[in-house]
Design a protein around this nucleic acid. Structure first.
Length: 581
RNA sequence: GCGCCCGUAGCUCAAAGGAUAGAGCAACGGCCUUCUAAGCCGUGGGUUGCAGGUUCGAGUCCUGCCGGGCGCGCCA
């Protein structure tokens, strides 16, 4: 970690201009260390940024401001020293200037930028990938919808978020595994079994109303009929649903869930069963380990203040985990009053198991209503593994459906509930995947079914895909007119718009890496919309298939590079790259 | 009561602690029919909820308020 830049470059491999600049500055800082201007050893981290203002150059470095204190110099003075210490024989930077409070702004040689299209085309589908993950193992757990009913759009958002995050991490050089945690134990799946059993009996004789809390939705009857098809009247005599019936129902629902995920092109490496945790004694083992660390006791929790406590609330002693030792607000219960484990207890065992599987990092994508669980799971993980930062939880806010700007009214009771499957069937996988990532996970998302289907520029998916298709139509047009592809000569590209397009195209690797490391997949769609915007503007203003073979060839290569960048970006999102639209 | 998330242009939202806070839509003004998309170009629009603090620098970090969402025990 020499020179104060967090990611020592491997720019020969990726040809990221930014890395090359970082390398240059690193050399200068090392020289200043040798001269005694800067203290030896590791320096605080500095940044190379893309300035918003063109007049601030191609790249901007903040080293002088960060290191001024250590150097006991004013930032601008130090900036001058850094500039003077740059290697003399470099061909990258045309000009370096000290500006503002002490930024060093670098203006690159035009010829350097003009090497980028060739680099992109040479790297092809690999352009955008980096190795900074260094093969470290990351597990992304996502969806994990209860196997008690069809997935809704909120699950879909979590599914896309987790899937793309996993893809981005893989593209950044991590070894990634996708995992689905099946909540096939506990009360809810029992209710599913009871509901199915009720509908099953109705196939033989009229029954009374469903017991309280059961699922009235039509899919339950579908499961009951399938159960009848397989087992006949075998379960007529039972009163409580046997495990075989529950398992049958869960399998049916999981089949739908897999199908829905498949339609979104999402596949998991592992499906992890909560029931296995119970059966294999893994919860007992985890709780015993906590007990051996004196982190478990019998205690009485206070009822939550502020709102009405539950009807049947009464203070009673229960088994508690000392989560407060690890930053949680209160100690958390491990067993219910009937003696069975809480969901939290199973989650402790589950995450303990993840840790023992040797992952360097765990990422969970959860619905925002699970936000209250983050601290306690992290607390338990820290207690069991000593690692505070092993788990990162990305909370995904809810999705609201709209149609032509009007909210879609949904009620489970009224039967107007719209499932993920219905949305995907109506608008297609591409808009769902792309549009679900057009907000930060922390923001609620409005999804307009009509907008998602629209083939026009106000639909971001169309807008980006169309940039890709446009280049292909240029190829068609080329053949149609009997033109040859011309010749590449960077000298022919003299327009500022062309340089700007190249600068934007050069950003893909840093956007991918940044989105992966920050666990913020929405950055990629935003980048692609901006890139597509720059290209569309260029395309609208500038004829590409011109008579002059040199100009034609040069602009065509630019367009082909653009197609590669947009295509790679869309592929990382799991969105198709149509050649015609 | 406590914790987490959110509060940014009329609307929906961006912005690894960086310079003069950006896009899309809407509004306003212009051009138009030309490598497929009633399209393209441009303009205006802000005390980043409020008040302090940290530092070279805060929409971003800290503290306290205001407003909204989620959660805090037997759902997962």
């Amino acid at each position: 970690m020499e020179g104060g830049f967090p990611h020592p470059s491997k720019s020969s491999e990726f040809s990221v201009m930014r890395e090359s600049v970082a390398q240059l500055v690193t050399q200068a800082l090392a020289a200043l260390q040798a001269q005694g201007v800067l203290p030896g050893g590791e320096l605080p981290p500095c940044k190379v940024e893309r300035p918003k203002e063109r007049q601030h150059g191609d790249f901007s470095v903040n080293s002088a401001m960060v290191l001024a204190r250590a150097a006991r110099m004013k930032p601008r003075e130090l900036a001058e020293r850094i500039l003077a210490a740059l290697p003399a024989d470099q061909t990258l930077v045309r000009e370096g200037a000290v500006a503002g409070p002490g930024f060093i702004n670098f203006f690159l040689h035009r010829a350097q930028w003009l090497t980028v299209p060739d680099t992109i085309l040479a790297q092809g589908r690999d352009y955008g990938r980096t190795t900074s993950g260094r093969g470290r193992r990351v597990q992304v757990e996502f969806v994990s919808a209860n196997p008690t009913g069809p997935m809704h759009v909120g699950h879909g958002r979590g599914a896309v978020t987790g899937d793309v995050l996993a893809t981005l991490l893989a593209a950044t050089g991590f070894a990634v595994e996708r995992e689905y945690y099946i909540n096939d134990a506990g009360v809810q799946v029992g209710i599913l079994g009871t509901s199915v059993l009720h509908r099953y009996r109705e196939l033989f004789a009229p029954q009374g109303p469903m017991p309280d809390g059961c699922y009235p939705a039509p899919y339950v009857a579908d499961i009951a009929r399938a159960l009848w098809d397989r087992d006949g009247d075998r379960w007529l005599a039972v009163t409580e649903p046997p495990r075989a019936v529950i398992d049958f129902a869960i399998d049916q629902v999981l089949g739908w869930i897999r199908h829905d995920l498949e339609r979104l092109n999402i596949r998991f490496d592992h499906w992890f069963s909560e029931l296995d945790l119970h059966r294999k004694g893994m919860i007992d083992a985890a709780v015993e380990q906590l007990a051996s660390q004196d982190l478990i006791y019998q205690g009485v929790l206070e009822a939550p203040k502020g709102k009405q406590p539950p009807e049947d609330w009464e203070p009673r002693p229960q088994l508690l985990f000392r989560a407060t030792r690890f930053g949680d607000e209160v100690d958390r219960p491990l067993k219910k009053s009937d003696g069975s484990y809480t969901y939290f207890a199973a989650d402790i065992a589950y995450h303990f198991d993840k840790a023992r599987r040797g992952f360097d990092q765990l990422v969970n994508v959860w619905g925002a209503d699970h936000g209250g669980y983050v601290k306690r799971v992290q607390a338990a993980l820290e207690a069991l593994t000593g690692r505070r930062d092993l788990l990162d939880v990305q909370l995904v806010q809810m999705v609201s459906l709209f149609r032509d700007g009007e909210p879609v009214k949904m009620s489970k009771r009224g039967g107007t509930f719209i499932t993920l499957e219905e949305v995907v069937s109506e608008v297609g996988a591409d808009p769902v995947r792309f549009l679900f990532l057009t907000r930060s996970s922390n923001s609620r998302l409005d999804f307009d079914l009509e907008l998602a289907k629209r083939q026009s520029n106000d639909n971001p998916v169309f807008y980006v895909q169309y940039a890709h298709a446009r280049v292909h139509s240029l190829e068609d047009k080329l053949a149609e007119r009997g033109l040859d592809p011309g010749r590449w000569d960077p000298q022919a590209l003299v327009l500022e718009e062309e340089l700007e397009l190249i600068r934007q195209m050069s950003r893909l690797p840093e956007v991918v890496e940044g989105a992966a490391l920050a666990h913020e997949p929405h950055r990629l769609p935003y980048y692609l919309m901006e890139l597509a915007g720059v290209f569309h503007a260029y395309y609208n203003a500038t004829p590409i298939l011109v008579e002059d073979p040199v100009l034609r060839g040069s602009r065509l290569k630019l367009a082909r590079a653009l197609r590669q960048v947009v295509g790679n970006g869309l592929s990382l999102l799991g969105v198709s790259t149509p050649e015609r639209m």
